[in-house]
Computed example of a mutant assay.
Amino acid sequence: MNLVELNLSTIPYGQPIPFALRGVGGGLLANKGFVIRSADDLRVLLARGQALYVDTDESGESYRAFLSQIQSLLLSNKPLNQIATMTLQTTTAPAAATQDNSPPAWREWQLGLTQLLRTPSIIDFAQRFEDLFSALNAYLLKNPDGALLALMQMSAEETRYYSATHAMLSSVICMTVARETLRWPENRVLPLGRAALSMNVGMAQLQDELAQQSTPLTPQQAQQVDQHSDASVSILRAMGITDPLWLDAVRTHHHRAPGKLSEKTLAQQMARLIQRSDIFGARIAPRINREPMSVTSAMQASYYDETKSMDEAGAALVKALGIYPPGAWVKLASAEIGVVVRRGASAATPRVAVLLNKSGMPTGEPIPRDTAQAAWKIVSPVAHKEVRVRLPLEKLLAL
């Protein structure tokens, strides 16, 4: 453990801290992503820890990035009040990450979108949102299976930043379905993706809190959930967003409106796609008070509408993603267990990277399997929590 004391004047209020905070002796005061909302919150932490420290053995890279940002502001001759209220922006990371063949910095995107949705600012919201969305879309066009794999894994593993991960997954699913199954033109796909990415800006903070909450919703929380679609539209308008398709899709994305897509307005079609992807993403994500659904059960929930009939938008989602989308863990006829890394020729025959052999032991290196072959046919989904081996996200994407 290598503790470095933080300069308290550099700590931004209202935004996720990109490293864990520790007190004298190294005791943990707050996990990475903790939000200090005011000077009172800061005083509470100081009372517990006497001072605030970062363990550079634990958070060296994120701490160095933080220092680099402060230094850049100082060298740019920014006013001192601007440096004191600096934000932990990650807007340059997405664009840079898509310029070569390396995977995006998904965790930085997650943190940046968390900040953007929780504390939108009229000063830079529109530009930062578009930067992140453009980078996400660019990677999706280049590697749709990689985008699905990354976000499915992040959804299964991380609850603290649920709102951002869920938004990115919903956006990626919607655009994939619109492009690959519905064959929509780009002037429809892009507003759909933006709407899915921003649909819950009116309750982003609450979403993250509820993912960690074991008690039932309070009346105030329930009211905020019920009203979040309209609240999201109001916030987006205040941030300078004027696209009617984008705003109408956000406003109606929780409307219960089964029926054929062709009988709906374009905004209503977008809203229905968002709703189906929203249902799927919510059901595969863990909560403190419940286990996530299996991927196949989540697919089924998206496939059927409010009348228990086939939903056209849900069926398009299943057709585009497959029964076992990238990121799903499965058991094969060979008794091996692996993760889906690429969609296959049919909805039920994806490519799988085996990580556990038939004895349940780690394989060491991933073994590719084509599940269209009878010997490696998928026999069942496997819950993420039941898998005893993990590969870093970067290694999974490399597959």
Rank of each mutant, 00 (worst) to 15 (best):
L67E: 05
L28S: 12
G25I: 01
P16S: 11
G23F: 02
P12H: 07
K32A: 14
G49Q: 08
S38R: 10
L28M: 13
T56Y: 01
V54G: 03
A20I: 00
D55K: 08
G49M: 01
R64E: 15
R48M: 06
L46S: 11
D40A: 15
R48N: 08
E61W: 10
L45V: 03
D55Q: 10
Y53E: 01
L42P: 14
S62M: 02
P18E: 11
E58I: 05
L46R: 05
L28I: 13
A39L: 07
R22Y: 10
L29A: 00
Y53P: 00
I36H: 04
A47T: 11
R43V: 14
A20V: 05
A20Q: 08
F19G: 11
G26Y: 10
E61Q: 07
D57N: 14
F19T: 01
F66Y: 05
I17G: 09
G23S: 03
S59P: 05
S38K: 03
G23H: 02
D41K: 09
S38M: 04
G26C: 09
K32T: 14
A20N: 06
D40S: 15
A51R: 02
P18K: 06
L67V: 04
Y13Q: 04
A51P: 00
I11C: 13
G14L: 02
E58L: 15
G27C: 09
T56L: 11
V54E: 00
P16F: 03
I17P: 08
S59C: 09
D41C: 07
V44P: 08
D55P: 08
D40T: 12
L52W: 08
S62D: 08
L67R: 12
I11S: 13
Q15H: 09
K32M: 11
P16N: 12
P18I: 11
G26Q: 04
K32R: 15
R64S: 07
G27M: 13
P12W: 00
G14C: 00
Y63E: 12
P16D: 12
L67F: 11
S59K: 06
G49K: 07
I17R: 05
R64K: 09
I11K: 11
L45I: 06
K32N: 07
L42F: 04
T56V: 14
E58W: 02
D55W: 00
D41Y: 10
L21H: 04
G26D: 13
F66I: 06
P16H: 05
S62T: 06
E58K: 03
Q50P: 14
S62R: 07
Y13G: 09
L21Q: 00
F19A: 06
G25P: 05
F19W: 02
L21A: 02
G60V: 02
G33M: 01
P18M: 10
L42A: 06
V54R: 01
A30N: 04
R37Q: 15
E61Y: 10
R22L: 13
L28P: 14
G27L: 14
I11D: 05
V44G: 10
L21T: 07
G49A: 00
Q15E: 15
S38E: 03
K32H: 12
L45C: 13
D55E: 10
P18D: 07
D55L: 02
P18N: 04
V24M: 13
S59I: 02
A47R: 12
Y53N: 00
P12L: 02
P12V: 07
F34L: 00
R43Y: 10
E58H: 13
L67Y: 01
